[in-house]
Structure formats: structure tokens, C-alpha cells
């Protein structure tokens, strides 16, 4: 589906908890064509400050509505959180490639895929979990502490098996989500071998996931986050090193195969 630049009406924009917000806008075009892993690029305010759009991954769609889940981290996302219901957002989307769904990977169909979410990385993985819920994905969610764990209720509501990891041990496994992944792969090696790992989160986590997937001979797909100037593939600003040279996170990604990246 080709992306478009549209004015989309805000249906809701609510604080979920702490600095985490949910925003819904109306766009039949984006809602009906968006695939898990894709993102939209939003002009959060009129004028030149901030100058650039803010790329946000698609958290879900319902009918003609598109759902975003974002964290207020700077001036741009703060301005977005101030936008009111009924206002129109300047949105470009859907942008980027998408996750390859299980079954397309090495023809393996009956293994549950594993989703690994670190922090805000849960946002696009909820959309993915919804699309592949029939394959009963196993979701691992990691955070520094229990109160920072995101989307576990949403994953459970979709019928996913959810396991959590916190650095301080305040919830679930004590340690990094990647350590939990290693432990699970050891325990359940026969039942998960050959299934795909989908991950989104901080770069060190993604690098660790790639290594673990590689060691266990499992395909991995990683959704990368990067500062972008254009979001449509023109400026060559958001590149990542791959086996075939630099690739644009916005256009060739944001989803890359672990085998492809050389970071």
C-alpha cells in the first residue's frame, strides 16, 4: 500500500500511566492498509518548532481508526500529548516495511513465535500479536522495574502467553529479558526450536536477541528505532549497517532480519 499525507482527526488522546499515552486518529486509508511493524510520521505542531515530524509505530487498528502508544520523552511528544480530541493531525503513513508473518519464515508453521519487547518496543509488537494470535505467540516483556512493564494486559487479552523480566526483580524473572529468553530456549528447546523471534526495544537488547537467535538457529526479525529527518527514504539520514551496505531504517526497514544486520 502506498503511503499518503493526510489530515487525520484525533478521536482520543489520553494518558495511560506516568508518561505513557494512547492516541487514536481517524484514517480509513491507513487503518485498512497498515501492517504490523509499519509506522506513521506526525507533524506534532504547526510551524517550524519542532521542525521535523515524529515517527511513531502503529500500535493497532480498529475499523477506520489507528491507535498509537507513545511515551512523552521530549518537546515533540509533549506537544503531541497536548493535542486535543477533534483537532486534525498532519500524518504521513503507513511507512516502512513490516514483519514477515510466521509460516513465511523457513516454512515452519506450528511453532509458537516468540515476541521480545523491551520498554516502548511493546507498542508495535501488540499489533503483530493481534495479527498472529492464532499461532499463540509467547511474549517476553522486559523493563527496569515492574511499574515500567508495558502492554502485558493487552498481550494476555489477545491470548498470548506472557512472561516478564525486570532488572530489579520487582516482577517476574530477575534480570534482563534476553537472559529470560536464553533460559526459556534451554528449557523448552524442543518446543521452540525453529520458531521465529520478533523483537523491538533498545539497541543493546536487539543486539543480544540477534546473537541468541543466531546461536539457536532461529530466525529473528528486529524492529529498529532511529532518528529520522524525512521518514520516506529521501534523506539517507537514518541508515543502519547491513551485509549489503547501509540501509534506510525508514524505507528498507524498520524491520530487519537479524542475519542481515552487521552492527
Amino acid at each position: 500500500m502506498r503511503p499518503a499525507q493526510i489530515k487525520a482527526k484525533i478521536i482520543s488522546n489520553k494518558r495511560f500511566k506516568d508518561s505513557y499515552w494512547h492516541l487514536e486518529f481517524e484514517s480509513r486509508l491507513i487503518a485498512e492498509s497498515a501492517l504490523p511493524g509499519q509506522f506513521v510520521n506526525i507533524k506534532v505542531a504547526d510551524g517550524v518548532e519542532p521542525l521535523l515530524r515524529r515517527p511513531l509505530s502503529i500500535h493497532g487498528t480498529a475499523g477506520s481508526r489507528v491507535r498509537l502508544f507513545y511515551e512523552v520523552v521530549g518537546a515533540g511528544t509533549r506537544l503531541l500529548s497536548n493535542r486535543r480530541v477533534g483537532e486534525f493531525l498532519d500524518v504521513i503513513g503507513p511507512l516502512g516495511n513490516s514483519f514477515s508473518l510466521p509460516g513465511k519464515l523457513q516454512g515452519v508453521k506450528f511453532q509458537p513465535p516468540i515476541l521480545v519487547a523491551g520498554g516502548m518496543g511493546a507498542a508495535p509488537l501488540v499489533f503483530l500479536a493481534k495479527k498472529i494470535r492464532s499461532s499463540r505467540p509467547l511474549v517476553l516483556i522486559g523493563a527496569r522495574t515492574k511499574s515500567k512493564l508495558l502492554c502485558s494486559r493487552e498481550f494476555k487479552a489477545l491470548g498470548c502467553q506472557v512472561k516478564i523480566a525486570t532488572d530489579d526483580g520487582s516482577g517476574g524473572f530477575k534480570g534482563r529479558v534476553t537472559e529470560l529468553l536464553i533460559q526459556l530456549l534451554r528449557q523448552e528447546i524442543s518446543s521452540v526450536r525453529g520458531s521465529a523471534i520478533y523483537a523491538c526495544g533498545p539497541r543493546p537488547m536487539l543486539k543480544a536477541v540477534t546473537k541468541i537467535a543466531c546461536e539457536n538457529n532461529i530466525d529473528s526479525q528486529l524492529s529498529l528505532e532511529e532518528h529520522m529527518a524525512c521518514g520516506i527514504g529521501a534523506c539517507l539520514g537514518c541508515v543502519v549497517a547491513t551485509k549489503s551496505g547501509y540501509k534506510r531504517v525508514c524505507k528498507d526497514g524498520p524491520v530487519f532480519s537479524g542475519k542481515e544486520l552487521t552492527w
Binding site: 517550524v48 518548532e49 519542532p50 521542525l51 521535523l52 532511529e226 532518528h227 529520522m228 529527518a229 534523506c235 539517507l236 539520514g237 537514518c238 541508515v239 543502519v240 549497517a241 547501509y246
Partner: peptide, 13 residues
């Protein structure tokens, strides 16, 4: 990379 960053009313590349 990183190759770009936002600045007041502008950007660096």
C-alpha cells in the same frame, strides 16, 4: 550514522 539531528528551526546532516 547517526547522520542527522534536529536543531532549533533547523537540522544538521
Amino acid at each position: 550514522p547517526p547522520r542527522t539531528c534536529e536543531t532549533p528551526a533547523g537540522m544538521l546532516n
